[in-house]
Every structure is written in C-alpha cells, then in structure tokens.
Simulated assay, not measured.
Amino acid sequence: MQRKPPLIWLNITLFTLTFAIALLWVPWHGYHHGFDKVEWLSFILLALFSGLSITAGYHRLWSHKSYKASRGVKIIYALGGALALQNSALHWCSDHRVHHKYVDDNDKDPYSAKRGFWYSHIGWMLREYQVTKPEYLNARDLQNDPIVMWQHRHYLALVVVMNILLPLTLGWLNGDILSMLLLAGVMRLVLVHHCTFFINSLAHIWGKQPYTDKNTARDNGLLALLTYGEGYHNFHHIFEHDYRNGIHWWQYDPTKWLIQLLSWCRLTWDLRQVPQERIETARLNMQLKQVSHRLTRFPNCEELQQHLQLEYEQLKTAITAYYQAQKKLLEAKHKHLCDQQLISQVALLKRQLSNRIKHWQQFTARYS
C-alpha cells in the first residue's frame, strides 16, 4: 500500500481555524453585537479586491498572458493576491500552467478533478504532494517580471500587512477592531478561498461541455456568480489565452468587465480574443459528436447519421464563408476602403449562415 505524503500542518491549521471562526464566531458575534455598514462595505470591497486580483491578475494576466497591464495595475494585483492568501503569483501561476498542460492526469495535474471533489478543492494543499522544491521552469517569463518577483520575495510580509494590519487599521478607524477583523478579515478570506477553490473542483464536475469533452472542465453560469466569472470553464480550457471566460454580453464575468474597463482607461492593452470562427467551429463539432451519439439509439441510425453529416458540412461551409468575408471587410475598412459589393456579400452570407443555423437547430432538436 502506497504511503500518503506528509501532512502540511500549517495549511491544515490555517484552513481549519479560519473556517471554524467563519462558521461559529462570526455568526455569534453578528447575532449578539451586529456589524455596521462600514464593516459590511469593507467586507464586500476586500472580497472583490482579493478575488479579482486572483482571477484578473494571477489567472488571466500572469498565468495565461491574455492581456498586458500597466505597472500600477500589476502592483495592485500583487497586493490583492497577498490579501487572497493563495500563495505568491509565481508559485500559483506555475502550478496553474502545469494544470493546463496535464489536466486530469492524476500523476501530473496538481489538482486533478479525477481524484475527486475534496482533493481538487482543498485536499491537494493539505499534504506534501509536490515532492521536489519548485524551480518554476515553466514561468521564466514571470521571473523576469520585477513586480512578480518583488511579491514572491516579500510574500509573507505582504500577507501580514494585507490580512492583519489592513483590517486592523480599518477597524481602528471605524471604532471596532474585532468586528472588522472577523468580517472583513476572516469571513472575507474564507469566502474568497472557497469560491476560487470551486474553479478547480466544481467547475470540473458540474455543468455542460459545449466546446470540448477532452477534459473534465464544465461551463456553469451559477458557478460564474461565485467565481468572479470563472465558471465558464469549458470555454477557458480550450481557449485559455482569451481574456474572456463569458464570451456573451449577458454572461456574468466581472473579471472580463474589469479588464475591459481598465483598457478604456489605457491601463491594460493587447486584450487577446479567439476568432469567433474557431469558437463556432468548436461548438459545432461538440454538437455533432453529441447528436451523433444519440442517433445510435434509432433503428434508421445510418440514414440519420448521413443526414446529420450533410447538415454539419453545409453549416461548417457557411461559417467559413461568412467569417472569411467578414475578415476581408474589416481589412478593407481598416484601409479606409469602402467596397459596397463586399458589404453586400457579407450581409448575404450572414443571412445564409443564419438560415443554416436554423436548419441545424431544427434537425438536432428532434433528437435531443
């Protein structure tokens, strides 16, 4: 029988103590003493600050290089990351890049969802599963980032400043240090911990797979509400360098909105987006696979499969034709060339694509 790695008592103590305080002491204190508006506002603002520093900073900026940011924004992310208490950006991003490279490999993925909910949520941090000291060979670019390395070298000091001195100072200014430490300190920390941990656990277990089934990642709108927009995880795992997770305007993705807002202020730039044609093609390929599997239950399966393949080819051709023409039109506009014939062609191809999508939806709906 294989021996389990040694326990990491520091992490166990931290997670157990903070969770117990959040579960027992905070409600008791709130019931008997209450929390005022300033304490609740501090709780909300610090939760947003620390959570978005992980999702917009650690994740989309430093792990995946999905956009570029100013020095000031990076410093804020570094401070917010220390407030979130999820290790330094260098360590976090190195682990995350390994996760994407070896996703669902129980031997190489540091928080493989195939080892179960508990392991991928928090268990991987409770034992010495990383037997060798990390060298961060997959994060050489981050080792050349002075702000990442500043945070890495002074991480423990920053953790103390952001998680103890900051709420303590806010409490002193508000006239109630204990209440501020409990709500904006401990309760906020536990909430952000487990909401962001859901990205590694529930986002690989619960939801749909509209873009790929080559890994366990799922899209889940409800999880997006809890994870600062990171719940559209199936999209993320196939298009990891896109600065968005929720690609539609109606999808809840405050991390994307923050990055966009900062770009309007010229504090972020070079926001990377996957071409829409690739997104549509990935979605179409998954629909083909799913419907094709369902058709095996029908006695005239072979005939239906041929019809499905024909509809698929026609829709794929329409997608390619439309987006190629649209690309030409954008290039012409960029050169300040007005080609009425090209504009008419794009409009026609868009109508044809819309009709083909309706045909596809009608056909696949019969076998859903």
Rank of each mutant, 00 (worst) to 15 (best):
S66G: 05
F15H: 00
Q143C: 06
D145S: 05
H91Q: 11
T268C: 08
Y102E: 02
Y102K: 00
Y211M: 04
H154A: 00
D104H: 02
H336D: 15
I177L: 11
L284Q: 05
D95F: 09
E39F: 04
I8P: 05
L329M: 09
I147H: 05
L137D: 12
R356A: 11
T216D: 03
A78P: 05
A78Q: 08
I21Q: 05
E128F: 11
E302D: 15
Y102R: 03
L349G: 04
N138P: 08
I12V: 03
E240K: 10
F363P: 13
W269F: 11
H336C: 14
Q276K: 12
Y312I: 05
R297Q: 14
A224V: 09
T55M: 06
L90K: 00
Q260P: 11
K214R: 14
G207R: 04
V26D: 01
Y211L: 01
K289C: 10
W264D: 04
Q326A: 11
S354E: 09
I259H: 04
K327E: 11
R356I: 07
Y312P: 03
L45C: 09
V73N: 01
K289W: 07
L329K: 08
P110W: 02
K327V: 06
Q260V: 14
K328C: 11
C338Y: 12
T212D: 15
F15S: 01
G116C: 09
K208A: 15
F363N: 14
I147K: 04
D104P: 04
Y58P: 01
W249Y: 12
R218K: 15
W118H: 11
G207F: 02
D213V: 14
A318P: 00
Q361S: 13
P299Q: 12
S42I: 00
Y211Q: 00
G81F: 05
K256E: 08
S292H: 10
M286V: 05
F198N: 02
T227G: 04
D107F: 09
Y367F: 00
V190Y: 10
E135Q: 15
T317Q: 10
A56E: 05
P299A: 14
L90I: 02
L183S: 02
H121P: 06
W118D: 06
N285R: 12
L308E: 05
W360S: 02
H32C: 12
L330Q: 13
G116M: 08
S201L: 07
W360F: 01
L262W: 03
P27Y: 11
N87A: 07
I164V: 08
N106E: 03
F197A: 06
L337F: 12
V131E: 15
S292K: 08
L261Q: 13
A78T: 11
A78W: 09
Q361K: 07
T13Y: 11
A78R: 09
Q251W: 04
S368H: 07
R294G: 00
H237A: 07
I54K: 03
R127F: 05
K328S: 10
W62I: 13
A217Y: 07
R294F: 06
T132Y: 03
M1N: 12
I319N: 07
W206A: 10
Q151M: 02
H91T: 12
Q352M: 12
A139V: 00
V160K: 13
D176P: 10
I44A: 02
L181M: 09
W250E: 00
A84P: 00
Q151C: 00
K350T: 10
K37A: 14
E311L: 09
Q326R: 13
R3D: 04
L168I: 06
M180Y: 01
R297P: 10
P254T: 02
M125I: 03
